[in-house]
Design a protein around this nucleic acid. Sequence first.
DNA 1: GAGTTCTGGAACCGATAAGTTCCGTAAACG
DNA 2: CGTTTACGGAACTTATCGGTTCCAGAACTC
Lengths: 207, 207
Amino acid sequence: MTTMTMEPRRLGRPRDTTRDAEILQAAREELAERGYERMTMAAVAARAGAGKATVYRRWASKAELVIDAVACTADAALTLEKVPDTGSLSGDLRALRALKHHDEGVWLAMAGLVSELPHAPELASVVHDRLVRPRVGLVRGLLERAARRGELMPGINLDLLATVPPAMIAYRLLVSGEPLDTDFLVRLSDEIFMPLATGVAVPQPVG
Amino acid sequence: MTTMTMEPRRLGRPRDTTRDAEILQAAREELAERGYERMTMAAVAARAGAGKATVYRRWASKAELVIDAVACTADAALTLEKVPDTGSLSGDLRALRALKHHDEGVWLAMAGLVSELPHAPELASVVHDRLVRPRVGLVRGLLERAARRGELMPGINLDLLATVPPAMIAYRLLVSGEPLDTDFLVRLSDEIFMPLATGVAVPQPVG
DNA sequence: GAGTTCTGGAACCGATAAGTTCCGTAAACG
DNA sequence: CGTTTACGGAACTTATCGGTTCCAGAACTC
């Protein structure tokens, strides 16, 4: 961090700091709708009801704006604390699903960034730290809860297992293009994740 | 298909049909290296040792060239027949891994297209039919082999299960950016896919 | 009020790339 | 041969977009 110098009360009209968040939000929306390359600074400014000059006074380039827009997504992020401890892994997953609808937009923004990641290391780093890792970490946190309860199959590797739900969700949204409906999320839990974590095959529903 | 009229032997120098495949191959390579938006027609032509006019005489636009380039990837695709029936699912997966190194480029091309899919339905359809479905279908074919041998847990849903390996591979290459090394592929088989398919937890390696 | 900085909006600049045209040459026809 | 079409290569047109600059007005300090 920089040294905490109190700003010496600049001259002239003060910058309207409320615009920052509105511009970042507009950037995220344009990003999710159009992707990095198709998103234009003019469209971001227009969506925020701002002029391009106002945007460029805050961020030096499109790349920096996008990096910041991604970096500031954290406020809306799910954290482990927000998922109640229901006493069982399957219960926790059900609780997580109930909160999950806040999350789809993040993966849509991901879709617009995937093609960019190999060519923009700094962006890749931010995406990884703020979008990917928190989601894998959340799953891992639930697994560790379950481990403390003794629900997990002994000797299982949590790192690989924790990537399974994010991978399945990303695949569905980015590659196969299908919606993230409840049916899919339930089956992801019941048929894939729970059996892997506990080593116990869940009885299949009778047709 | 169009009516099979024999071409009435056009006047002038005949078109060099060997250039078609070379241009498509150049397009695939540029696509994998740069992604859809960064790929330029000039670069494709140069890589194929051709002029832009030669490219545009064959394809009316960049979009059509890319669609065709993806559609013609099938020749190099793995098919179920190429994976020997080793008598067990885990053996088949080992055999598949031995062939797999032909396949990474396809997912890299995917990475360059992901951001484009929501805005180009025709491209999305071709990508789905030629890249995604064959790979899911291959896994599904191996599962059906295993089912005939009685290796599978009864009542399991093959459709969802068959998407797990493609999803994990896509996630690793597109999202997390890690390499598709042997260690990962082995653990994907042993710790994720086999337990899910057979319902039998594989003993973990002793540390 | 004078001076300064911010605001949205619009005009502007420069680069990049899709797509077209033209060149000189090569390869087919009659 | 002459005509026609394809070839690689380069010049060209056109449109878009990142980024800058200017404007008239607003909001602040002194």
